[in-house]
Amino acid sequence: MDNTVEKGTCELCRREPVELTLHHLIPKEEGGRFSETANLCVPCHKQIHFLYTNSELASLYYTIEKLRDTPELKKFLKWLRKQPASALPRMKKSNRLKRRR
Rank of each mutant, 00 (worst) to 15 (best):
V18S: 06
L20R: 02
Q47T: 14
R68I: 09
K93M: 15
L12S: 01
K82W: 07
V5D: 06
A58G: 06
F76M: 09
P27S: 04
N3L: 11
L22Y: 08
C44K: 04
K74W: 03
T21P: 06
E19V: 13
L51F: 07
E72T: 05
L73V: 03
L73I: 02
H23M: 03
L77D: 00
A58Y: 05
S94E: 06
S94K: 07
H45L: 05
E30D: 10
Y62C: 07
L88M: 12
S59V: 08
E30R: 13
L73F: 00
H49V: 05
I26S: 00
E16T: 15
E11I: 00
L97C: 05
K75E: 15
A38C: 04
T21K: 13
R90M: 14
N39H: 15
D2I: 11
E36L: 08
S86T: 15
M91Y: 05
E29A: 13
D69E: 14
K66T: 00
D2F: 09
K82F: 11
V18K: 03
H24L: 08
A58N: 04
P17K: 09
P43M: 04
P17M: 07
R14S: 12
Y61N: 00
E65P: 01
K92F: 15
T21I: 12
P89M: 06
N3Y: 14
S86P: 10
R101A: 12
D2V: 08
E72Y: 05
H24P: 07
K75S: 13
N95L: 14
L40G: 00
Y61A: 01
R14D: 10
E11D: 05
K82E: 13
K98C: 12
E16D: 10
